[in-house]
Simulated scan of single mutants.
Amino acid sequence: MSSDRPVRVVVQHDTVDRDAVRAVTNLLRALPGARVRLVLHGPAVLASRADITELDDLPPGAEVVACRTALTGRGIDPSDLRPEVELVPSGVAEVVQLQHDGWSYLRL
């Protein structure tokens, strides 16, 4: 792809599995220099816990955010999260805002 604008992709994920890791890895491999932001909400926030291995193979440069509303609803304390996970008030609002800001959208 040739463009002066950097590629920015928001990946929405709401289940606990490794599909998101594969998709993010493939995106970053195919689009070097892209920003890829994985938004975990619903049951997928379980993967943001430090003791869960689903995100272990995420490549460097991948951004991961977790929905605070989903964490609270599942009784997960923010102190139990992986260190690379950023909290956002609402996962779906994060997706909407990024799309509004011009990010490409991928739902898994």
Results as ranks from 00 to 15, higher is better:
P59K: 10
E94T: 09
R37F: 12
A34P: 07
R37E: 15
A20Q: 00
A50N: 12
V88C: 03
V85W: 01
Q12F: 01
L46G: 11
V7H: 03
V96H: 06
G75A: 10
Q12E: 01
P43T: 11
V85F: 00
D80M: 07
S2Y: 06
V95Y: 05
V7E: 01
P78K: 10
D57K: 05
P83C: 07
L87S: 08
L71S: 02
P60V: 11
Y105W: 07
G42T: 15
R49P: 00
R82H: 04
L87G: 04
V16R: 14
R18D: 06
V64C: 09
P83K: 11
V64Q: 13
G73E: 04
D101M: 04
S90D: 08
L38F: 14
S79I: 03
V21T: 15
E63G: 05
L106S: 08
A34C: 10
V95W: 00
R68F: 02
D19Q: 14
T72L: 14
L55E: 10
E84G: 13
L87K: 03
Q99F: 00
D57Q: 05
H100E: 10
V24Q: 10
Y105P: 02
A66N: 04
A50M: 04
D56P: 12
G73K: 06
T25R: 15
R82I: 02
E86R: 15
D4N: 08
L81Q: 06
L71T: 07
C67E: 06
P89M: 10
S48A: 15
H41Q: 12
C67A: 02
V92D: 09
P6A: 12
V85H: 01
L31E: 13
V88I: 10
T72Y: 05
V39S: 04
L28A: 12
R74M: 13
S104Q: 08
L40W: 04
L71P: 00
R49Y: 11
A62S: 14
G102Q: 05
P78L: 08
V36G: 14
Y105F: 08
L31C: 09
D56M: 02
Q97K: 09
V36K: 03
R18C: 06
V39N: 09
E54N: 12
A93F: 03
T69D: 11
V11Y: 07
E54L: 15
L27V: 01
V9W: 05
G75I: 07
D19I: 04
R5C: 00
P32L: 05
H100W: 02
L81I: 08
G75D: 13
D17I: 03
E86Y: 00
S2K: 08
L108Q: 09
S48K: 08
L108W: 11
E54A: 15
V85Y: 00
D14K: 03
Q12Y: 02
W103M: 11
E84W: 14
D4V: 10
L38I: 11
R82C: 07
G102F: 07
R18E: 11
T53M: 05
L106D: 04
V88N: 10
D19E: 14
E84C: 10
P6Q: 12
